[in-house]
Design a protein around this nucleic acid. Structure first.
Length: 469
RNA sequence: GGAGGGGUGGCCGAGCGGUUGAAGGCGCCGGUCUUGAAAACCGGAAUCCCGCAAGGGAUCGGGGGUUCAAAUCCCUCCCCCUCCGCCA
């Protein structure tokens, strides 16, 4: 119990639910959801197809807890049946007592019996509540089930989908971005470490302007040409919000957390705008006519990078703080995979306009993030490193986050509310885009050419050179 | 920080401790009327859990308590709002 289950704010007290319609041959069946608590996978589905779930989770982790989950659930249901029989009796007798009293009688024997029964009920309810808590916490730790089109296996099973652009041929040895940036006087890691610690950076002059120009360029592209609506959101959010998108309870060690005096509820710095933007509609029932919703948000992202010690220690690749333009979609289940493809295209367009070579990779089950059913990574070419590096990740989370955050819609035809599907993708990570520009557009003299598409955002400037930057 | 007010169904909003799962309005779905639509009128619909089913249970911000019985009484926590003070 970490405290986030104490109060569920915007969440209905007893989350209701319906599930997403079945997708052909997929793992999510058309069974009604069994979520008397926050679900992530549909408990009823797990109960009815345990072997299928175990198989699906084998390369994703969590398969081991399925049996324990089912045992707890069976126990829970046994006790619920028992306690409900007692409650039915109590309700019946209470009604009889009420009638007797109206007749002027005082059925003290029944009243005493019901008092004893009430104690038994209380004990059983307590036990049930304990079991529910255990089931819930196990359920919250299970990752999403992969989509059937996702290759099974670890990182080595990832599939390259396509490449765009040809890595430039250099007449000299291309330098890594930290050298390019430091020589230009626009990147400063030493001072960042002085101010904070390692894995932070300071951008001077044209570096800072480039970061801002890139952000603006990306936002404008998505707003003006791709139909996204811009949102500005809190960078500190409460625990419920983090649970909603799946960061909590499992990945708390990756988050920066505030300490509030006198047991106040802590807030968490967002690791991505996906968190607040997706949860914008937490606890709401949307109208199908409002869907799909397409949002774009620019925010800084804060990550502890626990467990990444020694990786990418130089440069700006892996930072505790970085800017990102994030795309989020809230859609109906029927359209979510089409929306994933178009989101990917929207992200790719940023790289194309910036003339940065990249490849698209479909992640295998073991490499796909916790919340996601299917993820494409966009890897940009970094000549300074001689390899492709992740610059965007586009995921369809299906109903995983919708269940946790209680985001549903009412079908246009009327009827029960149904969980939406949520998607998110970087469009793009701004810091890494800046890196890519420094490395791909560096010249022999140490200057950096500015891609055409960006020049309008930099007063038409064509290159960044050392002087006075 | 000080002082008050409030959290009820998709939304707004009523609700003497027992026949209230919850009035009324809006919105929604179906129908009548209409060339069509609107208006008007009629009708329908909360959610989750257990159960093969019949049926039963639970839910009025969260948790606890009083009671034979709680949306209604008590305690506690969370959140929102208003006024004053401070302030980017």
């Amino acid at each position: 119990m970490t405290g986030w289950e104490a109060s569920r704010g915007w969440r209905p007290s007893r989350p209701s639910a319906t599930h997403s319609p079945p997708r052909a041959g997929a793992l999510t069946a058309a069974a009604p959801a069994a979520n008397f608590f926050l679900p992530m996978l549909d408990l009823k589905f797990i109960r009815e197809h345990p072997e299928q779930v175990v198989r699906a989770l084998e390369t994703r982790g969590g398969a081991e807890s399925v049996q324990r989950l089912l045992a707890l659930d069976a126990d829970r249901r046994r006790r619920v049946t028992a306690v409900e029989a007692s409650k039915a009796l109590r309700n019946k007798v209470s009604e009889e007592i009420a009638q007797a009293k109206r007749r002027g009688e005082h059925p003290s024997e029944e009243m005493a019996r019901m008092r004893r029964l009430g104690d038994e009920i209380k004990a059983l309810d307590t036990a049930i509540k304990g079991l529910e808590g255990e089931v819930e916490s196990l359920l919250l730790q299970l990752p999403n089930l992969p989509h059937p089109s996702v290759p099974v296996g670890g990182e080595e099973a990832n599939q390259e989908v396509r490449r765009w652009g040809t890595p430039r041929r250099f007449a000299f040895d291309p330098r890594p971005h930290w050298e390019v940036g430091e020589r230009l006087g626009i990147l400063d890691f030493e001072r960042a470490a002085k101010l904070a610690k390692s894995r932070f950076s300071v951008l001077w002059g044209m570096g800072a302007r480039l970061e801002r120009a890139l952000s603006q360029f990306m936002l404008d592209l998505h707003i003006r040409e791709h139909g996204y609506r811009e949102v500005w959101v809190p960078h500190l959010v409460n625990a419920e919000t983090m649970v909603g998108t799946g960061q909590l309870p499992k990945f708390e060690e990756q988050l920066f957390k505030t300490v509030e005096p006198e047991g106040g509820r802590p807030l968490y710095l967002i690791p991505t705008a996906e968190v607040p933007v997706t949860c914008l509609h937490g606890g709401e029932i949307l109208n199908e006519r409002e869907l799909p919703k397409r949002y774009v948000a620019f925010t800084p992202c804060y990550r502890r990078e626990a467990g990444a010690a020694g990786q990418d220690t130089r440069g700006m690749i892996r930072q505790h703080q970085f800017d990102k333009v994030e795309l989020v979609k809230v859609v109906t289940p029927a359209t979510s995979y089409d929306e994933l493809e178009s989101m990917l295209t929207d992200a790719e367009e940023v790289l194309k306009r910036l003339e940065l070579p990249y490849r698209v990779v479909l992640l295998a089950t073991g490499d796909t993030g916790f919340q996601s059913a299917k993820t494409y990574d966009l890897d940009v070419w970094l000549p300074g490193q001689g390899k492709y590096r992740e610059i965007s990740s586009c995921s369809n989370c299906e109903s995983f986050q919708a269940r946790r955050a209680e985001i549903r819609y009412r079908p246009a035809a009327g009827g029960k509310a149904v969980f939406v599907h949520t998607l998110n993708g970087s469009g793009l990570a701004v810091g890494r885009t800046l890196i890519a520009i420094l490395e791909n557009f560096q010249e022999a003299d140490g200057s950096v050419t500015i891609p055409q598409a960006l020049r309008p955002y930099l007063d038409g400037l064509e290159r960044i050179a050392r002087a006075g930057s």
